[in-house]
Simulated assay, not measured.
Amino acid sequence: MNVLQTKLDGIPINYIAEGLQNDCDEAVVLLHGWGSNIALFRQMVNHLAQYRRVYALDMPGFGESGEPQSPWSVDEFADCVLQFIEFCGIKKAVLLGHSHGGRVSIKIANRRKLPFELTKLILVDSAGILPKKTLKKRFRQRCYKIGRNVLSIEIVQKMFPDALENLRNKHGSADYKSATPLMRQSLVKVVNEDLEPLLPNIKQSTLLVWGENDTATPLSDGKRMEELIPDAGLVIVKNAGHYSFLDQWGTVCRVLDSFLGIPLNS
């Protein structure tokens, strides 16, 4: 992998730019999920770079890129991706977002003015729809908030210095537990934003690719996106989970080729 480095707003950014250089063709920009990085796109890049110019970046806080200076929302991740696209001189592109990268792609597709022509959208096991909270989940969340408030009291912190962190680790997701303190704050901002109201505004033709066994962003999310995005089609990938493009690359590859107009016998 030919990895390059640049800086955007003072943040070191790790990225790749490979494949055919043709200003007439649309480039493909790959956006990874939370806790992931560009390395997981290696197989996809190797294939698509035979036919398109392909770009992918480690978003700030992931892979080999630096962390932002403060907790970011989805909009700030979108701002960074747009800066990256301008930096690369991309004029026309397809956005492919996996999981959190899908969130960012949805935000970008809703911007009124873009520094490039967004021709198509590919959302792979995308995040963006808030899960419905069951009574049990609401109860647990309420208990957590009460415990957090109590353990945040200064005198309690002095008496039990590790208790608050232990509570967070007990209730936090795997992504939360593995993140740095700053990125944990970003994660809280990101996962609590509901992007469902933005979906009907997407004008681009959109391909939805979903693992049938996805538990992180369940298939019901993909079906809901298909209902709300005006020009969307959903492909359900059998025997695949949240990383459907890794679990069943052969199937996903053929689907991408068809959507991008790459000859199937190439």
Rank of each mutant, 00 (worst) to 15 (best):
F62W: 08
A39S: 13
Q185G: 02
A216L: 10
A240V: 04
K120R: 15
K238D: 15
G63Q: 07
R148S: 13
L4Y: 10
F77E: 10
E67V: 10
G19K: 03
G97E: 05
V74R: 04
L4D: 02
Q157R: 15
P12R: 07
M44F: 13
S178T: 14
L208S: 04
I236N: 04
S65Q: 09
F139V: 13
D23L: 14
V29S: 04
V156H: 02
L198V: 03
G10Q: 10
A93G: 07
K113Y: 15
G66W: 00
S178A: 14
A39P: 00
V81N: 01
G250W: 04
L207A: 05
S99H: 07
F259K: 06
G63E: 03
R224F: 03
N149Y: 12
F77Y: 15
H32G: 06
L246A: 09
Q83P: 00
S205M: 11
Q141W: 12
D175V: 00
E26D: 13
Q185L: 14
H98R: 02
I122M: 10
F116E: 09
T206R: 06
G211I: 04
V252D: 04
N265L: 05
I122H: 05
A240N: 06
V124K: 02
P60K: 11
V124N: 02
R103L: 10
E67S: 14
Y176C: 07
V209H: 06
Q21E: 15
S173A: 09
T119S: 13
T217S: 08
Q157E: 14
K120D: 08
P218F: 05
R42S: 15
N192G: 13
S258E: 15
E117V: 09
P71R: 03
E18W: 00
F84L: 11
L8D: 05
L167Y: 06
M183I: 11
R254V: 04
F77H: 08
K91L: 12
P12M: 07
Q5W: 05
V150N: 03
F245K: 02
I16T: 14
L182Q: 11
S126H: 12
V74T: 12
V150R: 02
L199C: 08
L167Q: 11
R52F: 12
Q69P: 01
K238N: 15
E67G: 09
P230L: 06
E86P: 00
Q248C: 08
K223G: 08
A216I: 14
F87H: 14
R140Y: 14
N2V: 10
P218H: 01
V104T: 13
C80V: 14
D75L: 07
E76N: 10
V104D: 05
L96V: 15
H171G: 00
A127V: 05
A163H: 06
K133G: 03
H47P: 00
C143P: 00
D221Q: 09
I202L: 11
R111L: 10
N192H: 08
S186Q: 06
V190W: 03
L118S: 08
N2Q: 14
P71C: 10
A127Q: 07
L256N: 03
P230N: 09
D175Y: 05
Q185D: 14
C80L: 14
A174G: 06
F160P: 00
A163L: 14
R224V: 09
S186M: 11
R111N: 10
R53S: 12
A17N: 08
V54S: 07
F41G: 05
